Each structure stands twice: as C-alpha cells, then as structure tokens.
Amino acid sequence: MQEEESRATSYTTLALGPEFRHELEIKRSRFITVLCRADSEDAARNLVAGLRREFHDARHHCSAFVLGPDRDIQRSNDDGEPSGTAGIPMLEAIIKRETAPGVTDLSDVSAIVVRYFGGILLGAGGLVRAYSESVSAALERAPLVRRSRLRICMAAVPHAAAGRLENDLRAAGLVMAKTTYGARDTTLRLAVPDAPAEIAAATERVLSLTAGKTELAAAGTEWIDVPLT
C-alpha cells in the first residue's frame, strides 16, 4: 500500500516489533488493549482473528484500525457491544492522538480491545469512555516512530571499508537504509530528504569520508522508519 503515491511525505506509526499490550480494569471488567503495526486490512484482520483464538473465552473483541500515509482507510467494529460504544471511540482515540503539539498523523495502527465482563453494566456512556480510555492509555505508552518517504542514495565500497564508513555516516546524523552485499563490494544505502540541497550535502559527506573515491547514486524513494526526536 505504501508503494502508491500519497499526499503525505511522513506520518507517525508504531515501532516495528512485538505487539504492544496494556490492561485496564473498570468496574470489574478487564479491558486488554493490543496495539499492532499493520499496513493492510488483511494484516489488521489477522490480528483480530489471532486474538479471538487467544482470548477465546472473552465476551468482546472490539477493533479499530487506521491505514495508509494519508489515513484514508479507517474501520471499526463493536463486536456485540451496543452500536457506537466501542469501535468508534477506539477509532477516534487513534485519529485524534497527538504525536506532537497540534499534530494528529498516527497511522498503520490496529487496535483491539478484549473485554472480559465483570458483572457490572457500564451503560452506553461508560462503555464509550472505557474503550476510548483503553486505547488512549495504550497509545500513551506504546513506542512510536516517524515514517518518512526519503530519497535512497547508494554508495558501493570495498567490504573492508564498509563498516567504518557506515559508522561515520551514522555519526554524522545520516539515516541508513538496508545494506546489501555483493561479490566484490558492499552497497551502503542512505535515506535523505528528497531535496537537491540534502542530496548534495550527503554526496559531499561521502566524498569527504572516502577521499573523493566514492560518489552517491540515486535509487528512488522508500518509506523509512526514523526515531522520534
């Protein structure tokens, strides 16, 4: 999905890794929120299916997800709770989550709240608050990254020199994409903002570190995870 052209050039998402879990107890009901990065509807729905198997004795497995750099895919499901009391509050918690002051750009996020009923009815308003709070509390604690569409520039260097050059480039603040290895050379891939001045600065840096022996070659754009600062 991210290979398609989008209006957005960056957005915030969950860091890659195991799914993130957080639990709240509200009036004896357990609300177990599971957050996972997902870049397709199939991936989001597979997460729900897996949790239904894991928590097979739970009464509800409510879900919401937001996908795509432009957040153009948004879905929610109440899974048996009164209409509008679970899925929509969960979806709004994702959509309205500020990742910086005044910035709401969280995407590629799937949220599932597994509820074990505790015997006390919460009412419609109580359910809305519970599901919204469950997802919001999980997002407060979950690890996030910036995902940006960056220009990939490649530099082919001898294997013996690759490690040191990569370390020097990282120390200079450049973002590295996946390195590839050939029979004779190691190809370092730098991810830089897609602007002539940024590319020129990266090229000058590589030339300086390699005594003018290595130049950068442009190789399209990719979505790259960048740690939040």
Rank of each mutant, 00 (worst) to 15 (best):
H22F: 14
L165T: 07
E140N: 12
G50R: 07
L207D: 09
L122K: 03
G80V: 04
G87I: 00
A138E: 06
L51W: 01
G87P: 01
L121N: 13
R53Y: 09
L91N: 04
D105C: 09
E5L: 12
A43M: 07
R7L: 14
L150Y: 01
H22V: 11
T33V: 10
D225V: 02
P143C: 05
L14W: 10
G182D: 04
G119F: 08
A100L: 14
R97K: 15
P227R: 04
P89G: 08
G80W: 02
I152D: 02
I88C: 01
L188R: 06
E54T: 03
G80D: 09
R53I: 12
V114T: 08
D105G: 10
E98P: 07
Y131A: 08
A191C: 12
V113W: 05
E215Y: 13
L47E: 05
C36E: 15
S110R: 04
R205Y: 12
T85P: 09
A155F: 06
A43T: 11
E41D: 10
T12Y: 09
K213W: 07
R53Q: 13
G68R: 01
K178F: 02
Q74T: 12
D79E: 05
A171D: 15
L150T: 06
A49E: 05
E198P: 06
D72K: 06
Y131M: 03
S110W: 05
L165H: 09
A177V: 05
A93H: 08
L67V: 01
V206T: 08
W223E: 05
G119C: 11
C36F: 00
S76P: 01
I199M: 11
V34Y: 05
T210I: 12
G163T: 10
S110A: 15
E41C: 11
P82E: 06
A171F: 14
I224R: 08
V103S: 10
A201R: 15
L127I: 02
Q2I: 14
I199A: 12
E41P: 04
E98K: 13
P18W: 05
L16R: 15
P196S: 03
G212M: 09
I94R: 04
L169T: 09
K96H: 15
R59V: 08
V114L: 02
Y181P: 00
T221Q: 13
G84Y: 03
V103M: 13
R53W: 05
G220D: 04
A43L: 11
G182Y: 04
A137V: 09
V114W: 00
R147K: 15
